[in-house]
């Protein structure tokens, strides 16, 4: 008993300074490796947890908006979605190409904080159904990866958005068409979200368009990828 207690207090044997430094370096390298692995776990899985919770909140918020709009119907018909703040629920996006049940709540705004919660509407652009370019950005890696199958979008696909004002369907006339590098653009190619894509941004729009943007490559951000379409049907609420 006495001997055991003494052994527990015994100091570690002396090591040469080189061995100590090598030992610490090795431990630091192992730690760095573990942190990198943890970061991968964070991007693949951790970010999605927060997004899933945010989507639930947004759906509730959107339902409440619809309810309160229904209640004060005595007022005039001018229910503009314009009084939304960044991060608020904007509407429900449906893209049958991504699956019959594929449905995401869109938030107002495209800041990092907004896009964490779901696909976001470019706040300076037109609203859904309006003349001009209604544009949405979404992640395709991490944060629930709403746009993960983005290259699968084909020309002719329908993209539906339900907002407080109605349900609008757009038909894509420009899409990656299954090519993983299709419709790849530069980060600075903001012309795709201009009111009339390809024309000076001051051009008066005559069409109601939709544009979706995401990152390229999927697990990086060196470029962007986009798809675009034109309004084909609208159903006012």
């Amino acid at each position: 008993m006495h001997r055991k207690a003494r052994r527990g207090r015994r100091r570690a044997p002396k090591r040469s300074p080189v061995a100590v430094i090598a030992g610490v370096m090795g431990e630091l390298l192992l730690t760095a490796g573990a942190i990198v692995l943890l970061f991968v776990v964070y991007t693949l899985w951790g970010t999605g947890l927060q997004t899933a919770a945010a989507q639930d909140d947004l759906r509730e918020e959107f339902d409440l908006q619809i309810q309160s709009d229904d209640e004060d119907e005595s007022e005039d018909e001018s229910e503009e979605p314009g009084d939304l703040e960044l991060g608020d629920a904007y509407g429900i996006l449906r893209i049958p190409r991504f699956g019959e049940d594929w449905e995401w709540l869109v938030v107002e705004g495209v800041e990092d904080d907004d896009l964490r919660d779901g696909p976001g509407r470019y706040p300076d652009n037109a609203h859904a159904g309006e003349l001009g370019n209604f544009a949405i950005a979404g992640h395709r890696s991490g944060h629930g990866e709403p746009f993960a199958p983005f290259p699968e979008l084909h020309e002719g696909d329908i993209v539906e958005i339900e907002t407080r004002t109605g349900i609008y369907q757009y038909e894509l006339d420009s899409a990656p068409n299954g090519d993983p590098d299709g419709n790849r653009i530069e980060i600075s190619d903001s012309w795709v979200v201009d009111p009339v894509p390809g024309e000076p941004s001051s051009t008066e729009p005559e069409e109601a368009r939709l544009t979706l943007t995401t990152c390229w490559p999927r697990w990086g951000s060196s470029h962007r990828m986009y798809a675009s379409g034109v309004l084909v049907s609208e159903e006012e609420r």
């Binding site: 991007t43 190619d189 962007r224």
Partner: peptide, 20 residues
Amino acid sequence: LFFWVFPWVEETFGINRVTV
């Protein structure tokens, strides 16, 4: 790491941007 460091790294280094 999960709550503060990684979100900061993601934002600061812009490794996951989707807007033009």
